[in-house]
Write a protein that binds this DNA or RNA. Structure first.
Lengths: 207, 207
DNA sequence: GTCTATAAATAGATAGAC
DNA sequence: GTCTATCTATTTATAGAC
């Protein structure tokens, strides 16, 4: 994955495209706007990428590759299962904050039924779940975790996380003036909350 | 809101459009496809609606009006706070199952920053949160609930619910062959789980 | 590698007949 | 209310010069 550098045009295109796809979705994204934001022109995009779809797939793939790398490191570490679980949640949050385009693009891709996810990306997605499963198995073997449904647990982690990051705009727009609406919500507070909920399930404090 | 009936063309357009917007998003939706799915032609859409945007706004508004009506009924009922909370979660799930376009459209709209939400719809969204707040206040006054952040609690309810309904397609596509991936997940099990998590927070069983 | 100019297709919207 | 035909703008993608 050629990481973006201010100098090379391909990196600038990837950065501009990620922003554009996050803001407008695949169909709504405009190749010309991407080119202008990258201080280039349309032709340069087709010099580096075969098509709009290929550009989008590259961005998707990069997102999930990054997340998988991070959570695989966590699963392979020497921490206790509960600590790994906390770090798993944190890893996803870190990646979402480092790549602000990640949560909105993932939300849209879910709504699209995963239509643009190619084989490489699918492997990464499965790798993320495999890392969580490994943590759960280890915890269960150690007697620290009870067995829970992987998808229910993962949904309880990824869904509120993605919502928190992706809805900053909507919260500002819709909840102006609503008391207790949580304008003061910090990433740290949300992450801590999700960690506690997940651990409460695994440790049998809640059914 | 003129409810869809098999006979009238406006209802058929609304039904076809809801499906199209859910599958492709606002920008990706195709007016011609909507017309064909409604067994009509493009001109009929512009006879009933001012524009593609107006058609989309009507569908958004209808979704949230329906949810608000349901949760307002729950909040105004005579049940105990804990029962109301459980019925609040169930109400959203019922509405999501009754309108399969609702979860994907809402996911996309979040990613869009709520760009297409007009004033009427905004009132409905706020009304949904107001109903939850009323339930929380009542529970707190009765000494049954402790005070929690409205947005964190609501996010913990709405996010996994929308994910569950909206990701059925992705789960099938991405997780084929993954053991324990929860192909057996039922709406009832997911709803019960979310109810328990929310109540655990409110009753202080988890921080 | 980067650009201008343009081809080719798509899609929102409207005119006007019935 | 419903249709066919069409206008017009937008947009992906490419040709070809530098």
């Amino acid at each position: 994955m050629p990481r973006p550098s201010a100098a090379d045009s391909k990196g600038r295109i990837l950065a501009a495209a990620a922003k554009e796809f996050a803001a407008h979705g695949y169909a709504g994204a405009n190749v010309d706007r991407i080119a202008r934001a990258a201080r280039l022109n349309k032709a340069m995009i087709y010099y580096h990428f075969a098509s709009k779809a290929a550009l989008y797939r590259d961005i998707l793939n990069d997102m999930f590759a990054a997340v998988q790398r991070r959570v695989a490191d966590v699963a392979a570490s020497a921490d206790a299962p509960a600590a790994k679980l906390r770090r798993y949640v944190e890893a996803i949050a870190v990646e979402a904050e480092a790549r602000p385009h990640f949560p909105p693009i993932w939300l849209r891709e879910l709504a699209d039924g995963g239509r643009h996810i190619d084989q490489a990306t699918r492997r990464h997605v499965r790798g993320v779940l495999a890392a969580l499963q490994a943590i759960l198995d280890e915890g269960a073997r150690a007697g620290a975790f009870r067995r829970v449904n992987l998808i229910i647990l993962h949904g309880g982690i990824i869904a509120p996380l993605m919502f928190f990051f992706a809805t900053a705009g909507v919260r500002r727009r819709l909840l102006r003036g609503v008391p207790l609406a949580g304008a003061d919500l910090s990433t740290a507070a949300v992450v801590a909350h999700i960690q506690q909920l997940a651990l409460a399930q695994l440790e049998g404090k809640v059914a």
